[in-house]
């Protein structure tokens, strides 16, 4: 199956599952984001036809919510928590450190598409502040000088 066919099949499956439920758009977008890591423009276009909803309305929803992304994420997603507890325990210094190491700013992906950096609001483990999450793994009580080692583990894995 080509990539295009797969996309079509994925979408049709999703739409079939949700079509008869009221207020389905956000749930369908969640599923798309789960499959691709972002919402590609062509899926939105197709979705608009399948659901008979104007594209503008789909984009209106995507851009309103922080959770939906329009750009593909990096191979590894680095999230730094800036919830209150982490903020009080100097999470901003972690962000500075990562920005320095990876030469990217918040919301950007490195040139080699290896890391994407996000600043998030509360990962819900304030007891471990400051918290950093890489993909699904949570690092608690992170110190500034530990970051290089943690990141290089991921680089090594690739090699």
């Amino acid at each position: 199956m080509t990539k295009k066919d797969k996309l079509q099949a994925d979408l049709e499956g999703l739409v079939k599952k949700w079509k008869d439920k009221k207020g389905n758009l956000i749930m369908i977008l969640h599923s798309i984001e789960n499959i691709y890591g972002y919402v590609p423009r062509e899926t939105s276009l197709k979705l608009s036809r399948l659901l008979n909803v104007p594209l503008a309305r789909i984009y209106e929803v995507i851009t309103f919510y922080n959770y939906f992304k329009l750009e593909p994420p990096g191979k590894h997603n680095v999230s730094i928590c800036m919830g209150t507890a982490c903020y009080l325990r100097n999470a901003d210094s972690l962000i500075e450190e990562i920005e320095k190491i990876l030469h990217i700013k918040e919301g950007q992906t490195t040139k080699d598409e290896m890391f994407h950096l996000d600043v998030v609001r509360c990962l819900g483990c304030c007891g471990l502040a400051p918290v950093m999450m890489i993909d699904e793994k949570v690092y608690g009580k992170v110190k500034k000088n530990e970051i290089v080692d943690i990141l290089s583990k991921y680089v090594k894995e690739e090699e």
Binding site: M82, G83, T84, A85, Y87, R121, C122, G124, C125, C126
Partner: peptide
């Protein structure tokens, strides 16, 4: 929808 940062 517990969005308040610092609460869980």
């Amino acid at each position: 929808d517990e969005g308040d940062p610092g609460a869980y």
